[in-house]
Design a protein around this nucleic acid. Structure first.
Length: 684
DNA sequence: CTAGGGTTAG
């Protein structure tokens, strides 16, 4: 048989075996393989090079069988490493581990093998498995190997076991930048940004130069520690040292600036990026959405698609968040549709969508979506329970909570916060008390401030003010403003004025700057006719009230969103809206409505104050809704600030007069008005 | 043939 000459030319053979990795290469290798066998010139070295070449070319099955079929199997660890590495690159750490574990007993794994195996364990989160790899590696004499130790470090750091990571780290005789960057990233993901920054400092003291990857960790640490100064100096450091500003680095800078409120800087960095991918867009979109600039976020979302980049789940989540901020139900629905066509509904997307429906006032859609997702995680359950609560369905929230327990899912502090709040808003006092107790005693969850607020609120609303007061004394920590406020509003509603007054004093001592809180305090003093104190509080209100951003309300009609602010004279239907407001005012007064001018914090004539109340953005939005929808249509209004006590009263009258169901979501919670009542009861 | 990196939910 005629053999190609190159079988006798080792140089050429080696070149062929290390050539590029493509399907064509794999076919060439198969031919070569056949020739080697036919010509019986297959040495162990050649076979293992061939196997490695198969692995590089992507034919892992061929690589493996080539090796296992021969005696070369036990002597060629490099070829096995190539196979394991190829599995890892392909994104199947489990296969990598399978090959590692099935290595022939005589094969001696080296540093590379152990490093690959540990990295595979880190990806799937198998700490136990990783530790047995570690034992073998240490036995084989790799105790001080930087690669082995760094990957072990990563295994711990990645899964939150920072104590173990630190132990490994402290024992390492030599550390390189990868070691340090693993520690930095580990502390960041463990929620310990200050420790991460500390690590970076130690690295510099050690004389190790950071690269992009370390700096990304440091940038993230600055983001989490809300340290823009340092973040900006890291940014400067990158530029000065001519480090590669790749997509990932630039994206983390965008995120750092955006999360710290410097949206303009974030935009500039984003604008300077030569190459942007889906994640960079997501970071920018979420930056806007989380800073209350939802319209801008959605504009960017459209730009992203227009520039040909398919939104990933991050961008979709942020778009949904923006929709829920401004109550843009129609766009939220279309995002939902987009997800259905192109993605699986992951829990994270599902949670965002459920939250969007909840905040846009569509309980039914939220429930439908929730029922469609069968693989539910804790956060998804929590979101749905919170949704029921927000919509005044305390009993449904409880049923859901019990259903959740039956599936074996363990509720956490957030679950109980949602549950207790739901029970409180539905007036389910006994259930609330019961589940607070069970939370503490059965579920061993230490109550946090929010849980106390819910329980105090629950008790105080139903007039059990004394019992709520006892709860406060039983608390270990001093009551906070929020807790006092819950108790105080209960006192006011249940005419427990004496107790109320002492609570009002306690609140003032804590120097709150929330106008809503001060309004409540002022109302209490007014009820006890302490006029000098009323004046004192009203002055505080005026001081803090002047700083607040303008109130703004949204209403969506037939898929179009309309925005209202008090000062805006430009609305095309302004005249009509104003006369509708005036007409309603007249009817309301006939039914007993008295304007509560104490909610106007400017020094104005009484009459002007009354007019200001009528022009609050939510009243304008409601009037617009009444003008543009048929009778019986439910109105959903989203307000960026709190609905004041006066508007709250007014809307009750409006819902009765017009026989409409009106839902107002404000910065605090939902208010459902129907037949002149509000299910979010007893607002002050 | 080997280790470390960005966004997103209650």
């Amino acid at each position: 048989m005629h053999l190609p000459v190159f079988l006798d030319d080792p140089r050429r053979l080696r070149r062929l075996l290390s050539s590029s990795s493509s399907a064509a290469a794999a076919r060439t290798l198969a031919r070569l393989h056949a020739l080697l066998i036919v010509s019986s010139s297959a040495t162990h070295t050649l076979i293992s090079s061939l196997a490695a070449a198969y692995a590089r070319a992507g034919d892992l099955a061929a690589a493996e069988s080539t090796l296992t079929a021969t005696a070369a199997a036990s002597s060629s660890i490099a070829a096995w490493n190539a196979i394991i590495a190829a599995h890892s690159r392909r994104g199947s750490p489990a296969s990598a581990l399978r090959v590692f574990r099935a290595l022939p007993p005589a094969a001696r794994p080296d540093s590379t093998t152990f490093t690959l195996a540990l990295s595979a364990c880190a990806r799937i989160g198998d700490i136990r498995g990783g530790e047995s790899v570690r034992d073998r590696a240490f036995d084989a004499g790799y105790k001080d190997d930087v690669f082995v130790c760094s990957s072990l470090l990563h295994l711990y750091a990645r899964w939150g076991a920072m104590c173990d990571a630190v132990k490994v780290f402290d024992r390492m005789p030599r550390r390189d930048r990868v070691t340090w960057s693993t520690m930095v990233a580990g502390f960041v993901s463990a929620g310990l940004p200050l420790e991460a920054i500390q690590m970076y400092r130690r690295m510099r003291e050690d004389g190790v130069k950071g690269d992009e990857v370390v700096m990304i960790g440091v940038i993230q640490a600055c983001t989490a520690a809300r340290n823009v100064r340092m973040g900006a100096s890291v940014h400067g450091h990158l530029l000065r040292h001519g480090m590669r500003m790749d997509v990932v680095t630039a994206t983390s800078l965008v995120d750092m600036y955006a999360k710290n409120g410097l949206l303009d800087v974030a935009c500039r960095v984003f604008g300077l990026m030569v190459h942007r991918n889906d994640v960079s867009w997501s970071a920018m979109i979420s930056g806007f959405a989380q800073n209350g600039q939802s319209d801008e976020a959605l504009r960017l979302f459209r730009n992203m698609q227009a520039s040909g980049i398919q939104p990933d789940s991050g961008a979709l989540v942020s778009a949904l968040l923006a929709c829920s901020n401004i109550g843009f139900l129609k766009l939220g629905r279309s995002v939902h549709g987009f997800i259905l066509r192109r993605f699986e509904f992951s829990c994270i997307l599902g949670t965002a969508a459920i939250d969007m429906y909840s905040k846009c006032g569509s309980l039914a859609s939220a429930q439908m979506l929730f029922n469609m997702i069968s693989d539910r995680d804790l956060i998804l359950w929590n979101a749905m329970i919170a949704c029921c609560g927000a919509h005044g369905r305390g009993q449904d929230a409880l049923t859901l909570f019990q259903e959740m327990n039956e599936t074996g899912m363990r509720p956490d502090h957030a679950t109980f916060a949602s549950l207790l709040s739901a029970l409180s808003h539905s007036g389910l006092v006994e259930e609330g008390k019961l589940w607070f107790d069970r939370m503490v005693n059965d579920f061993k969850i230490t109550p946090a401030e929010k849980h106390y607020v819910c329980l105090v609120d629950l008790l105080a609303r139903s007039g059990l003010v004394e019992e709520a007061g006892d709860l406060l004394t039983s608390m270990k920590a001093e009551p906070t403003v929020a807790i006092w406020v819950a108790l105080l509003s209960g006192c006011l509603n249940n005419k427990k004025l004496e107790l109320g007054e002492s609570i009002a004093d306690s609140i003032l001592e804590l120097q709150p700057d929330d106008v809503g809180v001060l309004a409540l305090v002022s109302n209490l003093y007014a009820a006890t006719k302490k006029w000098d104190k009323v004046r004192q509080v009203r002055k505080l209100m005026k001081d803090s009230g002047s700083k607040k951003m303008p109130g703004c309300s949204y209403i969506e009609i037939c898929g179009t969103r309309h925005t209202f602010v008090m000062e805006d004279q430009s609305h095309p239907q302004r005249e009509e809206i104003v006369s509708k407001v005036a007409k309603l005012d007249l009817e309301m007064r006939k039914m007993g409505y008295i304007p509560r001018t104490e909610f106007v914090y400017h020094d104005l004539e009484e009459e002007v104050k009354e007019q200001q109340l009528s022009y609050h953005s939510e009243r304008l939005a409601i009037a617009f809704g009444l003008l543009n929808t048929g009778p019986g249509t439910r109105l959903v209004i989203i307000k960026n600030l709190r609905v004041c006590g006066d508007c709250h009263d007014a809307i009750k009258y409006i819902s009765k007069i017009t026989d409409r169901e009106i839902v107002v979501r404000d910065a605090k919670r939902f208010h459902h008005f129907k037949d002149g009542a509000c299910s979010c009861r007893d607002y002050w």
